[in-house]
């Protein structure tokens, strides 16, 4: 849906602004709120996001953080002390990192076009990539290398090496719609105000 409303370049700039609001916010609730917002936006962008994966990431970071104790002791088991500071730090780091990934997923479109020769090269690469995805079902596990060779020769002929393979068509994407600007303004305002108010 986001891809239909917001152009790739605008989306990237907007995403970077949202990441900035996450970076400047200092409190737990602000980080959690913006991360949750990022998750929803990533889903709106059509990206598959595994909450289990990010829960495990947060848990792992927290687990290693609690071995560097500081602050008020919450719980003690032998020589091991679970402290509020270490627990809070770990959870905050995990949530923030997850939020950064969610916002990146929402902001970055595979249709992003770079200027100049780099842009032209990326355009070719992406077109070849889309062609390979279309024919991937032709891969045969029993004759893997021969079926792979057939696909490779079809997508990039070698038998006339002096002939340049056909150039991919130019890709054009619509500019940002009114709905897109509403989404951009609304989410950026909400994140910014959250970062400022929830201190």
């Amino acid at each position: 849906m986001l891809g239909n409303w917001i152009s790739p370049k605008t989306r990237l700039v907007w995403g970077l602004l949202m990441i900035l609001t996450l970076s400047v916010s200092v409190s737990w609730p602000a980080h959690a709120f913006i991360t949750a917002e990022g998750f929803l936006l990533a889903r709106l962008a059509g990206k598959r996001v595994s909450l289990l994966y990010f829960a495990f990431l947060t848990l792992s970071i927290t687990l290693f953080q609690i071995f560097l104790p500081f602050g008020r002791v919450l719980f003690r088991l032998g020589s091991f002390a679970l402290t509020e500071g270490a627990l809070s730090e770990g959870l905050l780091k995990g949530v923030t990192l997850s939020g950064l990934v969610f916002l990146s997923l929402a902001a970055v479109s595979k249709n992003l076009i770079f200027p100049g020769r780099l842009g032209a090269l990326w355009g070719k690469t992406f077109t070849y990539y889309e062609r390979l995805l279309e024919v991937r079902k032709s891969l045969n596990a029993r004759g893997l290398f021969s079926s792979l060779d057939t696909i490779l020769e079809a997508q990039f002929p070698t038998e006339s090496p002096t002939r340049t393979p056909s150039l991919p068509q130019e890709r054009n994407f619509a500019s940002t719609t009114l709905t897109g600007w509403v989404v951009i303004t609304g989410t950026t305002l909400v994140s910014g105000l959250t970062a400022v108010w929830l201190r």
Partner: peptide
């Protein structure tokens, strides 16, 4: 192309990944 391309396709260009 490999590094930037993966980041664009997977959407992780603006993250620590």
């Amino acid at each position: 192309l490999k590094v930037v391309g993966q980041a664009l396709v997977n959407g992780t260009l603006a993250s620590y990944v």
